[in-house]
């Protein structure tokens, strides 16, 4: 039997580091968020809840919350649905599935900063391949398909593609206030959905084949019925996890913003992590940065507790 003290010796380094690197900073942030501290000053003044009041009232921070929340509300559902869709399609293929899986996983491996810069080139107005392709599609069958004019009651010349083709002008994407956040979201989805797909593929393999066969015999003839009655409920735990981790990661989006838009144009992509970086690191306003940090941690905690709640409820029912 090992001496009792061994346990302490073995856990002491980890415990110390946890306290200093993870817990102490949270306390420091909480403390500083009530001050006007800046680095280099010997002391700081207690300003009460002023920083939080600013966060709630000033329009800059309202734009910050808007940008962050829109980003999360777009990236999470779309990348989860795309991940699930890709997983279901790949899983039902008789050949070639592994190839698609490899391709869709590539963005997860690549440094997001590097790929963000590449996307900027692809979306560039003069050398960019994206606008060039849109332009090349004008007046061909591609325009006919994507101006959706073939759908009844849709006027092809009034849809996005139709209008842009008519004027021969395509958006500046990252430089245009109306498109910048959408473009950043697109890059986020591009990067994240392969990860979700892989988790869903793992979830799908754990569904017993007998269950699907039984459902079929019981009358769930169509693929949609089997999905609704068997696959979707069985994937519940995977979905809860995928949604949680994607949400937490999307809240932390930074690389694309810093490299491509710096929060602009007119603060339309001013997300929380970038706000912390700009206020605290660049402008040395530690108090307000700390307050945003605390609000940020609050969001993360809420998401995680929601996950725990959902997971536990599921365990209870099954």
């Amino acid at each position: 039997m090992a001496p009792r003290s061994t346990g302490y010796w073995f856990t002491a380094p980890a415990l110390t580091l946890m306290a200093i690197i993870l817990l102490l900073p949270v306390l420091i942030a909480a403390g500083l968020s009530f001050t006007d501290y800046s680095l280099g000053n010997q002391s700081a003044n207690w300003v009460g809840a002023e920083n939080y009041e600013k966060i709630v009232s000033r329009s800059t921070y309202q734009k910050m919350f808007t940008a962050s929340i829109i980003y999360v509300l777009v990236v999470v559902p779309v990348s989860v649905v795309l991940g699930l869709g890709a997983a279901l399609l790949i899983n039902s293929l008789s050949f070639g599935g592994d190839l698609y899986k490899t391709i869709f996983f590539l963005p997860v491996m690549a440094a997001l900063l590097a790929m963000a810069i590449v996307w900027e080139f692809a979306l560039h107005n003069s050398v960019g391949i994206v606008n060039e392709m849109f332009q090349a599609g004008c007046g061909t069958i591609i325009e006919w398909v994507f101006n959706w004019g073939w759908i009844p009651f849709v006027d092809g010349s009034q849809t996005w593609y139709g209008r842009n083709c008519a004027s021969q002008e395509f958006p500046l994407w990252l430089r245009d206030r109306n498109y910048a956040l959408a473009t950043i979201c697109f890059i986020g989805i591009w990067q994240a959905f392969g990860f979700n797909m892989v988790l869903y593929l793992a979830g799908l393999t754990s569904i017993p084949r007998e269950l699907l066969q039984a459902a079929e015999m019981d009358g769930a003839k169509s693929a949609w019925e089997r999905f609704r009655l068997v696959i979707w409920p069985m994937l519940g735990p995977t979905t809860v996890f995928v949604v949680t981790i994607t949400s937490i990661r999307s809240f932390q989006v930074f690389d694309t913003i810093e490299a491509l838009t710096q929060g602009g144009p007119s603060k339309s992509t001013y997300v929380m992590m970038y706000a912390i970086y700009e206020k605290a690191i660049q402008q040395n306003l530690m108090g307000i940065g700390a307050a945003i940090t605390i609000v940020f941690l609050g969001f993360v905690l809420v998401i995680t507790f929601m996950q725990r709640y959902l997971v536990e409820r599921r365990v209870h029912y099954s």
């Binding site: 993870l22 900073p25 420091i28 912390i276 700390a290 941690l297 993360v300």
Partner: peptide
């Protein structure tokens, strides 16, 4: 501690 993303507490760590 699993709840705390290190990126989120970057500011106090930096200080």
């Amino acid at each position: 501690c699993l709840l705390i993303p290190v990126h989120a507490i970057a500011l106090p760590l930096y200080i």
